[in-house]
Amino acid sequence: MHELPLVIFTVFSQIAVGAMVTLWIIDLKGGVTSNKIGKGLSISIFVIALVAILSSVFHLGQPLEAFRALVNVQTSWLTREIWLFSLMLLTMIGYIFTWSKKYENKRKIVGGVSSLFGLIAVMGSAMIYVLPAMPAWNNFSPIFFFVMTGVLLGPLYVSVVLYFFDKESMNIWKVAPLMALVYAMSSFFYITVLLSGTGTLETTANNIMSHPMFVYRGVFSWIIPAVVLLPFFFFKVKRKPAFMLLAIVFTIAFAGEIIGREIFYNTIVELDINQVD
C-alpha cells in the first residue's frame, strides 16, 4: 500500500501538536512577547494540523466517505484519533480567538486543553499501530516515535517562527539537540532489541537497516540537529544560532522525519502464514 498520505498526516499532525504544546508552555512562562506573533503562530499551527487532517483523507479508498470513520469509538483507535484531533482543532479555534482578545488567563486554560487533546491524539494515532499482527509495532515504540517527532520538530518550529520575528528569548530550540540524542539512542536500542528477536522482528529490523534511505534518516533527524545545535547549547556561545541556521536544521530534521515515517510504514513485517517459526 502506498502510504504517502499517512506519512504526511502523521508527521504534520505531530509537528502541530509539538508546536502547540511548546507555544502553550512558553506562553505560560511569558515567552511570547507579542500577541500578534502568538496569534500568527497559533494560526500557522492550526493550518499545519488542518493540512494533516486533509491529507489523511487521501489515504482512504473512498475519501468522500471519510465521515463514516467517526462511528466506532468503542474499539477503533482510528475513530478515536479522528475525534481527538477534531477536538484539538476545535479548541484551537478558541485558542486563536483568545490571543486577539487578550484573554490571558482563558488563553492558558484553553491552550492547555488543546495541548492535552493534541497529545492524546498523537498517542491515539500511534495506538492504531500497536497490533499483535505487527510484532515490531506491538509495543511502546509507535507511541514513543510519534511523540518524538513532535518533541523534536515542535519546539524547533516555534523557535524558527519566533526568530523570524526576532522575538525568541527563551531558546526553545535547545530542546531539539537533546531530543535528537535521546531519539538516536532509543532508536538504536529499539533496532537492537528487534534484531535479537526472531521471525518478523528480525526481518523488520533487517528491512529498516537495509532501507536505502535509512542513513539519510539518521543523519537528518539525529545527527544534524545534535551536531549543529549542541555547540551553542554546551559552550554557551554568546551568539545565538541565526534564524537561517535554525530554519535549515528544522528543514533537514523535517525531511529526516518524513523519510523516517516512510521507512516506518514500508519496513514493517506483519505476521503471515508460514512466517512464524
Binding site: 489515504h59 482512504l60 479508498g61 506483519e270
Partner: peptide, 27 residues
C-alpha cells in the same frame, strides 16, 4: 457499503484475511 477503504483491518488481522481491492478501493 460501509467500507471506506482505510485499510486498518488489513493492518490489524494477523492472518492477512481482509484484502484491499485496488479497483473497488475497498476491502
Amino acid at each position: 457499503e460501509r467500507c471506506i477503504g482505510c485499510g486498518m483491518c488489513v493492518y490489524a488481522c494477523p492472518y492477512n484475511v481482509p484484502q484491499f481491492d485496488k479497483e473497488k478501493k475497498k476491502v
